Amino acid sequence: MDIAVIGNKEFVIGFQLAGVRKTYSAETPDKLTETITRVLNDPEVGILVLQSADLEQIPRRLQVVIENSVKPTIVTIGGQEAGLSLRERIKRSVGVDLWK
């Protein structure tokens, strides 16, 4: 399983330096929506990392898909935690609470 990162250039560059290969720069809401949709349909992606602020720029319908996604697991970084916590997403993805 791969990790994918979508966001502006400044956001994805750190992940590129850390060795994440699937990074996508999306500067406009339309490009962001298109890229997220494409990555959600990629069977090789297990974790998708997004900026919390970017969730406000995409259509509500796609926000609901992201909030309910089990595979890939969506992790938002920065600002206020959007949707479920990382713990809750891992629990849904794996099927057990790893913190217990």
Rank of each mutant, 00 (worst) to 15 (best):
M1E: 03
M1R: 02
I3Y: 01
I3G: 00
I3H: 02
A4N: 04
V5S: 03
G7E: 04
K9T: 13
E10F: 08
E10K: 13
F11A: 05
G14S: 15
G14R: 13
F15A: 10
F15W: 10
L17H: 07
A18D: 06
S25G: 06
A26T: 08
T28W: 03
P29G: 07
K31L: 13
K31D: 11
L32Y: 07
T33K: 14
E34P: 06
T35N: 07
R38L: 07
R38V: 00
V39G: 04
L40C: 05
N41G: 08
E44M: 05
E44G: 06
G46W: 01
I47K: 10
V49H: 00
A53S: 15
E56R: 11
P59R: 06
R60L: 13
R61N: 10
R61D: 15
L62E: 06
Q63P: 04
V65A: 06
V65N: 09
V65W: 00
N68M: 03
S69P: 00
S69E: 03
K71V: 04
K71W: 05
K71Y: 04
P72G: 00
T73H: 00
T73S: 13
T73W: 00
I74G: 04
I74C: 04
I74R: 03
V75I: 15
V75S: 01
V75P: 04
G78I: 14
G78E: 12
G79I: 12
G79H: 04
Q80W: 10
A82S: 10
L84T: 04
L86W: 11
L86F: 14
R92L: 09
V94Y: 14
V94R: 14
V96I: 14
V96A: 12
L98Y: 01
